[in-house]
Design a binder for these strands. Structure first.
Lengths: 237, 237
DNA sequence: ACCTGAACACCGTTCAAGT
DNA sequence: ACCTGAACACCGTTCAAGT
């Protein structure tokens, strides 16, 4: 059933050599079709017509493969439109992210679980968030309000809701983590936000934000919006 | 916390007989400790000091066990406070749900994936949503606005964001599904909502709501709230 | 009629034998 | 030095042998 490069019924086999890109593309397609539960190293290999072990020369393990899949699909989100007002720009970008998530329904779950397992979101997610923060900043939002805004947007940003930058107390620093100066250069808006939040939280141990406060802030903004809507609808029926 | 039967050679006496409740309690505790990935039938059995196959007399399979775990933790959410205004009542209930989710971080993912796999959410989830709709209705929300409100609340209701009642076109009706009249008696508010939505969508095939419209409605309400906040902050610094 | 150990078909990954 | 088949330690669930 699994055709090897024998001369029998299969044509000349390695016309397209295996590489990371092809592996990720096949993995994304398989997850789109059958969900992430049906995705296995063995199945990817089978779809590519190679032996399972061949994958391990291009991806370290399955987790690293999932990280690569995340960056593939997040890379499909349209870049920000340069010259629109902040609300239009955010709206377009979020709707583009939603279209991506409709194509790849497995993505929110994978992004969430991988972000929880890693110390930091994957590079493409970082870039997406950084440019989203940039839109708010250009639109005149003070940095603290941008922080609230991200929590308010919540699951509408990437389809899930858990906090992306959660403090995990018992975690030793990653030996090959990105040095702070490179971080600041690559993700200037995220860095600015992180510094502002850390400053606000000076008294608290750790640099995480006050999740309870942010949750209630977003909840109350939502409830106030609904109350305003209810009153408007009642007064103008 | 989780007791293992220590001695293999000691004659095992069933001091506490196995039942569904004990199995679910142990499963929830194991998931709380090690996450849902570390949860296996074999491990639950080991924690209870029984052979894996013994579980299958009380739960049909692992999916049914996950459904039971959902109902256990959703049952931990405080019931609605009877005599508060709608905003206070919703706020309290959602904050109670959040406390539950902090105790059981695996719950959103399991609820979401099981709801997707089943035709309908589990009974406890149905009851939670029904009573939440009831709060809005008592607070003077027209039924259509309640529908929007649930979409706006989104992930804040149960920690995840995908639609709970998604149309899955190719699904044969469950033979032992609840009859409509029992449905209407058990979940009156949900039924009212479903009827209103179906009426609005008369022209469209299927009874699902317009997800794209609801997404944009919620997104715009959020963005408007943020803009109002920005202006207020700018004018009163 | 009941209980359960062995077995089946999977999985990610290691490892050493073969080239 | 490379490649890869076999093996390991898991998994959910079936099934038939033993009681």
């Amino acid at each position: 059933m699994v055709e090897t490069s024998t001369q029998a019924d299969a044509p000349a086999q390695p016309r397209t050599p295996l590489n990371r890109e092809r592996i990720l593309g096949t993995a994304v397609a398989l997850a789109d079709e059958g969900g992430v539960d049906a995705l296995s190293m063995r199945r990817i290999a089978q779809a590519l017509g190679v032996v399972p072990m061949a994958l391990y020369k291009h991806v370290a393990n399955k987790n690293e493969l999932l990280d690569g899949m995340i960056d593939v699909v997040v890379g499909e989100i349209d870049p920000p439109a340069g010259h629109a007002d902040w609300k239009t720009a955010v709206r377009r970008r979020v709707l583009s992210a939603r279209r991506m998530l409709l194509r790849h329904p497995w993505a929110p779950g994978v992004i969430e679980s991988r972000t929880k397992a890693r110390a930091t979101p994957t590079p493409a997610v970082m870039e997406y968030l950084d440019s989203m923060i940039g839109i708010f900043r250009s639109g005149g939002f003070p940095i603290d309000l941008v922080h609230h805004a991200l929590h308010v947007m919540g699951s509408r940003l990437l389809g899930f809701s858990q906090e992306l930058f959660e403090d995990t107390p018992g975690r030793e620093p990653d030996p090959d983590a990105m040095p702070p100066e490179e971080m600041a250069a690559r993700y200037p808006h995220l860095t600015e936000l992180a510094r502002a939040v850390a400053h606000d939280q000076e008294s608290v141990v750790g640099s995480g934000c006050d999740d309870q406060f942010e949750f209630e802030f977003a909840l109350d903004l939502t409830l106030d919006g609904l109350e305003r809507l209810r009153l408007r609808l009642r007064d103008t029926p």
